[in-house]
Design a protein around this nucleic acid. Structure first.
Lengths: 114, 114
DNA sequence: ATGTTAGTTCGATATATTTAGAAACGTAGA
DNA sequence: TCTACGTTTCTAAATATATCGAACTAACAT
């Protein structure tokens, strides 16, 4: 339960992934959320653009692909194929979840271990 | 610059440390913030109490001490000696910083790598 | 079909992290 | 001072992570 949250923080805890996250958040297009709550990017940077931006043009795609996968598995971002490209976007649900966890007054468990 | 934020997320990205964080946030007492912006716990659980709560009584203090050190170095918590004990508390500045980073519309850098 | 562009997966390696036991350290009180 | 208690530091071992190049897959164009 709290381990899902930990996984999200962990995903953002790597400098490269945080740069990816920042770029996607500042740059990404609208995100559609369907009935089941699943988010899908309508538009946004492609994997190649992320790679180019984050590495400064060095384009070691495999590394970026690995980090994108981790962000996706943590539930931070979503990706969708658009023909030859794959577009990425931050999942707004994830951000909401993290902010709530950081700001909620009540911790999940509580017995002050006297 | 963004690396400090990454360090904070990383610190919260470990399940054990996130449990410590949750416990401290739900349990800790008032925190004084002095003129220089430095936060100091006025009251809160001791290291031993954190350990007891998080490990369920197994008290492997060295491990918890290690995690507390990491949380402290990341700037998430503060600790202060109170006689024989050391009390811990979450630094409210850290939470504010993280929430702002998650919710700010503007990413730190932006050139959509055309 | 062939080639080309866009991404992913695999394999290897170097590095970092988590964990825990033992020893050392600092503080309070007899 | 001596002892008990609370906490940190040292050391070591198992595990996880980040990174890169090469091989692979998918979609499109000619």
């Amino acid at each position: 339960m709290g381990d899902q949250i930990a996984g999200m923080f962990k995903a953002l805890g790597d400098p490269t992934r945080l740069r990816i996250f920042n770029f996607l958040r500042s740059c990404c297009g609208p995100v559609a959320v369907d009935d089941s709550g699943e988010a899908r990017p309508l538009d946004g940077p492609t994997v190649g653009e992320v790679c180019c931006h984050v590495t400064g043009g060095d384009r070691i795609t495999s590394t970026i692909s690995h980090h994108l996968k981790e962000l996706r598995q943590a539930g931070i971002i979503t990706m969708q194929r658009r023909g030859k490209h794959i577009v990425c976007a931050v999942d707004p649900n994830a951000i909401r979840l993290l902010v709530e966890h950081l700001t909620s007054t009540q911790g999940d468990d509580h017995d002050c271990c006297e």
